[in-house]
């Protein structure tokens, strides 16, 4: 009997560990871990490198996804606006380049050059960062303060298709409230996006 119970436990455990997203991901208020990931310039970056920053806009994004592309110019503007205030955009591509060749390192280099990315664009080769953060789709935003306490998770704004029709700039509202020392009213939103291509 004990034998069967142990087998049962082993089987159940193997099911749990075999799941693609073992970590449920961060919630607002939790402290995120730092990472060390390769940028399109060949250098490795960690959040600790930006020791003068007031916070970070970490965005899981990629080359191929139409939603990520629809937000590309807005991400560039966000960086231009907020890096001056000490909050840079850190873009991370977590997709498996075997499943989505358009998201491989060379294409990241090409896209960031063609579209003149002013922010660093990192590759999450092991997908460990995306899993730990609980990123599920592209684009997926995590705004955190200098201590890496997460203040906002979700969408950039309320209209992916028509930037001129945006009514609620969720992310900017969260950053502006944080910069004024006020509470962030909407801390979590959802958006349709391309599911991350897990290995």
């Amino acid at each position: 009997m004990k034998y069967f119970v142990s087998i049962f436990i082993i089987i159940s455990l193997s099911f749990t560990t075999g799941k693609k997203q073992a970590h449920p991901g961060y919630k607002v208020g939790e402290q995120a871990v730092d990472f060390k990931l390769k940028g399109v310039d060949g250098k490795y970056y960690s959040l600790a490198d930006f020791n003068k920053s007031k916070g970070f806009i970490v965005i899981f994004t990629c080359n191929h996804c139409p939603f990520a592309q629809a937000y590309e110019n807005r991400i560039i503007s966000l960086h231009k606006k907020y890096s001056l205030k000490g909050i840079p955009v850190i873009a991370i591509n977590p997709n498996d380049p075997v499943k989505e060749p358009e998201d491989n390192y060379e294409n990241m280099q090409k896209r960031s050059k063609d579209h003149k990315y002013p922010f660093i664009y990192l590759i999450d080769e092991t997908q460990q960062t995306a899993r730990t953060y609980g990123a599920a789709r592209t684009p997926h935003v995590f705004f955190m303060d200098a201590k890496r306490i997460i203040r906002y998770i979700g969408a950039i704004d309320d209209n992916f298709e028509e930037p001129e029709q945006v009514k609620e700039k969720y992310l900017e509202n969260a950053i502006d409230a944080f910069l004024k020392g006020k509470n962030v009213s909407v801390t979590q939103t959802k958006a349709i996006g391309c599911g991350i291509k897990w290995k």
């Binding site: 789709r137 309320d158 969720y170 959802k190 958006a191 349709i192 599911g195």
Partner: peptide, 14 residues
């Protein structure tokens, strides 16, 4: 964001 939770609150939208 207006409808994803209507389907399922655990759904992130991917």
């Amino acid at each position: 964001n207006s409808w994803i939770d209507r389907v399922n609150t655990d759904w992130g939208g991917a």
